[in-house]
Amino acid sequence: MKGVLLVNLGSPDSTNPKDVKKYLDEFLMDERVIDVPYWLRSFLVRGIILNTRPKKSAAAYQKIWWEEGSPLIVLSERLQSKVQEKTDLPVALAMRYGNPSLKSGLQELYDKGVKDVLMIPLYPQFAMATTETIVVLAEELRKEFFSDMKITDIPAFYNKPEYVKALSNSIKDYLSDKDYDHIMFSYHGVPERHIRKSDITKSHCKIDGSCCNTPSKAHEFCYRHQCFQTTKNVIKELGLNEENVTTTFQSRLGVDPWLQPYTDRTLVKKAEKDGIKKLAIVTPAFVSDCLETLEEIAMEGKEEFLEAGGEEFYTVPCINDNDEWVDVLAGWINNFKNN
């Protein structure tokens, strides 16, 4: 019997600092998130970060928390429900960190008799800290608890025409009645070393401004290339003027170099130096709105832009449970069902 597992990033169970600390511990102790030796990762996370960050993060979550719970969880559940209506295969939901856990999602399908799983990591672009960590953990769980289960995962879908069209239409629909001068595509940042580690050629990725535009097998697992290509895909689909579009990266952590240009600094530059007054911002690394979109961009980013001289700031919602996106997922699932 076949079944489907949708997997998103995750969220704390509540805005209580204790729950936030527990979530951050699981998240930041992942060797594919902070990719340093265990002793150093433990020192950084449990010796420093978890002694200061949980209260700050809890306050940020409180700003965006809904009555129903975490926006990311609620939106993921809505997506699951809508997708389930489009297929007769059982569709379960799991989070890489927090609840519902990846193990519980697989167990739910297994208890229904599912032995052939289509796993869909809800990340358009591949990254060590997103798609890869899900695939690796799922295989570990399969070997330990579900040895007679087969798991097939959908790879990064940033280039799939049906996804590009759904994303583009959601942007167009939201901005149809908005007056703006510039569009910024803000992607979650990763350390530059992640890009080099993911380079299967071990030689292509130079992060020098040209390698992402030079065809290579490395692009299959290059987060930086896939982000820039996502922007290009939308520009082409919507017929946008490239001069009015910028790609940036947000949420850097620590002192190591991360992907640039940085979103926060670019927001200030656009207002102060480039004279942009009305800016729209899109966050295509995320399928569901979450802390990084609702608080970091829609609140903090807006404040930074307006304080620097901007006048209008529009945050385009993620595709969430958009009907066209639901149809895209249902199409992939039904292809799996029939093959």
Score class of each variant (00 low, 15 high):
145 F>H: 13
45 V>I: 05
278 K>R: 15
102 L>S: 10
36 V>T: 09
303 E>G: 05
207 I>Q: 14
239 G>T: 12
12 P>S: 08
214 T>C: 11
105 G>S: 07
120 I>N: 00
196 R>W: 13
316 V>A: 00
67 E>C: 04
204 H>V: 10
218 A>L: 11
200 I>F: 04
335 N>H: 11
38 Y>L: 13
308 A>W: 03
197 K>L: 12
40 L>K: 05
119 M>Q: 05
159 N>A: 15
126 F>C: 02
281 I>M: 01
133 T>G: 10
64 I>A: 03
47 G>P: 00
3 G>P: 00
298 A>C: 02
69 G>Y: 02
60 A>Y: 05
226 Q>E: 07
87 T>W: 13
79 L>A: 06
113 G>H: 02
134 I>M: 14
30 D>F: 09
69 G>C: 05
97 Y>Q: 08
226 Q>H: 02
221 F>T: 15
9 L>T: 12
47 G>Y: 00
279 L>S: 03
224 R>Y: 15
297 I>H: 00
142 R>G: 13
174 Y>K: 08
154 I>Q: 09
271 A>M: 10
261 P>N: 04
101 S>P: 00
28 L>V: 05
327 D>V: 07
199 D>H: 13
250 Q>I: 11
114 V>E: 06
83 V>R: 01
140 E>Y: 09
279 L>R: 04
19 D>I: 09
198 S>W: 03
72 L>S: 00
275 G>N: 09
59 A>N: 12
204 H>L: 09
83 V>M: 04
125 Q>W: 02
147 S>K: 14
198 S>T: 11
157 F>Q: 00
